[in-house]
Amino acid sequence: MTDVVVEAVGLRKSYSSLRGGRSWAVDGANLRVERGQVHGFLGPNGSGKTSTIRMLLGLSRADTGTMSLFGTTVPAHLPEVMARVGAVVESPRFSPGLTGRQNLLLLSRSVGVADTRVDEALHTVGLGDRGRHKYKGYSLGMRQRLAVAATLLRDPELLILDEPSNGLDPAGIRENREMIRSLAARGVTVLLSSHVLAEVQQVCTDVTILGRGRTIASGSVDELLAGGDGVRVVTTDPTLALSTLVEAGVAARLDGPALNATGTAPERISELLAGVGVWIKELTPERRDLESVFLELTAGEDLSAQQSAQQSAPTNGAA
Rank of each mutant, 00 (worst) to 15 (best):
M1F: 12
M1L: 13
E7P: 01
L11F: 09
K13F: 07
S14K: 05
Y15T: 02
Y15G: 01
S16N: 09
R22K: 14
D27P: 00
V33W: 02
E34C: 12
F41Q: 00
G43R: 01
P44G: 08
G48Y: 05
K49I: 03
R54P: 08
L57Q: 03
L59P: 02
G65W: 11
G65D: 08
L69H: 02
T73D: 14
V74C: 05
P79V: 12
P79N: 10
E80D: 15
R84Y: 07
A87C: 00
E90I: 02
S91Q: 14
P92V: 09
P92I: 12
S95V: 08
P96Q: 07
P96D: 07
G97T: 08
T99D: 03
Q102K: 09
N103W: 02
L104W: 03
L105M: 13
S108L: 00
S110E: 08
V111A: 11
G112L: 05
A114Q: 07
R117A: 15
V118T: 04
D119S: 10
T124S: 14
V125L: 10
L127K: 09
L127H: 12
G128A: 10
R130W: 11
G131P: 00
Y138S: 06
G141S: 10
G141Q: 07
M142P: 08
L146I: 08
L146C: 09
V148N: 03
A150Q: 13
T151I: 05
L152V: 04
P156E: 14
I160C: 08
I160A: 02
S165T: 15
A171H: 12
R174C: 00
E175A: 13
N176G: 12
E178Y: 01
M179V: 10
I180G: 10
S182N: 14
R186P: 00
G187W: 04
V188F: 09
V196A: 13
V196L: 15
A198H: 13
E199C: 11
V200I: 13
V203G: 12
D206S: 14
T208G: 11
I209M: 15
I209G: 03
G213N: 05
I216Y: 11
V221E: 10
D222F: 01
E223W: 00
L224T: 01
G227F: 06
G228M: 06
D229G: 15
V234R: 13
T236Q: 04
L240M: 10
L242R: 09
L242I: 05
S243W: 03
T244H: 05
L245H: 01
V246M: 09
V246T: 15
A248W: 03
G249R: 07
G249A: 11
V250M: 06
A252R: 06
R253I: 04
A258S: 14
G263Y: 06
T264M: 12
P266R: 06
P266Q: 05
S270H: 11
L273K: 03
G275E: 14
V276C: 14
V278W: 00
E282T: 03
T284Q: 14
R288M: 14
L290D: 05
S292T: 12
S292I: 00
F294E: 05
T298W: 07
D302V: 06
L303F: 09
A305L: 12
A309V: 04
A309W: 00
A313E: 09
P314T: 10
P314E: 15
G317N: 11
